[in-house]
Simulated assay, not measured.
Amino acid sequence: MSTEDFTRQLGELMDREAIRECMFRYCRGIDRQDEEALRSAYWPDATDRHGPYQGSATGFIDWAVKKLAADGERSVHSISNMSITLAGAQAAVETYFMALQRDRDPEGVSREVFLAGRYVDRFEKRDNEWRIAARTVVYDWLRHMGTPEGTEAERFGIRMPVGSLKRSDDPVYALLASLGS
């Protein structure tokens, strides 16, 4: 393999890893209501078609953070099966996701929803950084699971620590702070 081929392949691997890290930041941001992480996953001029929301990514983040703060109780997003097609400073990225969400209905009753689908994203590399430029969320599976049965303590006994929707209360941020991140 020539030095030129090796350098090109190494650059492509680094680009793919930067895209994966951006997707992981998005998941942490949405699950922990970490507005900074969410904003860092999108370019300021990005668009998002996300369920009932369609418009700017900035508007989506504003809408989601407000909605989660008002109604959200728990959220876990897991991503897999990521296909990345690089095309210069752009990439077509399809990422499968599964999400479990617990929120409250308008009457304040807890409800749970299982979602599975795909993030269909156009990423752009600007100033050597990859972020989402345009997102369409494709919902392949949606199941309303109703109200949760019992409390977590009844199902599992007291387990600590419990993940938090709030950045300030979740253990991963204490770990990051201890590393100076």
Rank of each mutant, 00 (worst) to 15 (best):
V109E: 00
H50V: 01
V138G: 07
T151M: 11
M145Q: 15
V138S: 05
E124Q: 15
T147W: 06
G117W: 02
A134T: 08
Y119G: 06
G55N: 05
S83E: 14
P148E: 11
K66E: 08
L38E: 04
G88A: 07
G55W: 02
L86G: 10
V76L: 06
R118G: 09
K125N: 07
D71M: 14
R39L: 12
H144Q: 12
F123M: 05
T151E: 04
E149M: 10
D140G: 09
Y96N: 14
R122Q: 10
S83T: 13
Q101F: 00
F97L: 07
E124R: 12
Y42K: 14
W63L: 08
L115W: 12
F123P: 02
A70M: 14
D121E: 05
L38I: 06
Y42T: 11
L38W: 09
W141S: 13
R74V: 04
D105S: 13
F60W: 05
R118I: 06
S40I: 11
W130P: 13
T151V: 09
F97K: 12
E112V: 08
A99T: 02
A99I: 01
M98Y: 03
S78R: 06
A133C: 04
L38Q: 07
R102I: 07
A70C: 14
E129I: 13
R74D: 06
A92F: 06
S110Q: 05
T136S: 00
N128L: 15
A69N: 12
P52H: 08
R104H: 13
I79F: 01
H50M: 01
T85F: 04
V120F: 07
A57K: 04
N128H: 15
L86T: 09
E149V: 15
R131I: 06
D105H: 05
A70W: 14
R104I: 15
P106W: 13
G108K: 11
L115K: 13
Y53T: 06
W141E: 15
M145N: 13
R143T: 03
T136W: 01
E107T: 13
E94M: 12
S83L: 15
Q90N: 15
D121Q: 10
K67S: 09
T151G: 11
T58N: 08
R131K: 15
I79G: 00
V120Y: 04
P106T: 15
R126M: 04
L86W: 14
A57E: 01
S110N: 11
S40V: 10
A70L: 14
T95F: 03
S80M: 01
Y139H: 03
G150N: 05
V113S: 00
